[in-house]
Design a protein around this nucleic acid. Structure first.
Lengths: 140, 140
DNA sequence: CTGAATCCCGTCTGATACTG
DNA sequence: CAGTATCAGACGGGATTCAG
């Protein structure tokens, strides 16, 4: 997810806007898609996870999130900073030193992320099997 | 998220593969990214939400998920079926009648989705403000 | 060390038209 | 009704190069 092509539709009941009630019901959550737009990319959650318990410098982050390119690290950090999920601290020094840390909002995301992780742990194997079966049935 | 360009890195600690312990720790979850790849697109969660408590026909789904094109509905349903999150039942009749319903795995996703919804409800306003501030500061 | 700029490709998505 | 086929645009992400 990821492209923004029009107005964000409500995830679970696109027809009825959320009435602003307290318990987020599956029927009144226009925001889940917007949330997925925020961290549905390849790197956001990885970065957030790395920053979970300690602030890190740019280079540390790049090494920690193995495989990310300099470009994508920069872009992802900028966006997460813009959304207010991480904080950027630059020290006027030579060589440059920039540290990133989680904000409260960003930290609050760790819980839901864990929920997703549990679901994944429980069902991902089943899903992989399902894919294989599906692919084997079709080409016949 | 969305593109699959290489081996899926662990989300929260890409360097260390998950040792296969029970409590999914933020450090031992290689799967969250794979999960986000599954439902990080624009429509998957919308479809799943619509199927939460009742099976729906193709046309009903398209009307329920306002805005989705026939093409994207088809593609999304196929993928979700392949992952085993939804089940497709076709009735040999004229006119054709196809119904979609959640599988157990798909239903199990509703909980984590609600968690994300709560996070969104709590913090999304803050995030929107943060974006505005960020955009106002920069262009100066 | 921390980034910005550019080029390039694959994918996601929508619009439209056609079919059993 | 429930799709399939084709076209075209937007965006994500990597590689590489340059700069403060």
């Amino acid at each position: 997810m990821t492209q923004e092509t029009g107005p964000v539709p409500s995830v679970l009941d696109p027809e009825h806007p959320p009435p602003g009630e307290q318990p987020p019901d599956l029927d009144h959550c226009r925001e889940i898609h917007e949330t997925l737009t925020i961290l549905g990319d390849r790197w956001s959650l990885i970065i957030i996870g790395q920053l979970r318990d300690r602030r890190l410098r740019f280079g540390e982050l790049q090494r920690a999130a193995s495989g990310i390119s300099q470009r994508m690290l920069t872009l992802t950090l900028r966006r997460l900073e813009r959304e207010g999920l991480i904080a950027r601290t630059a020290y006027a020094a030579v060589p440059p030193r920039v540290e990133y840390s989680l904000t409260e909002v960003g930290s609050a995301l760790l819980g839901p992320a864990l929920e997703l992780g549990r679901w994944a742990d429980t069902h991902l194997d089943t899903i992989r099997v399902s894919r294989r079966h599906y692919d084997e049935r079709l080409p016949e």
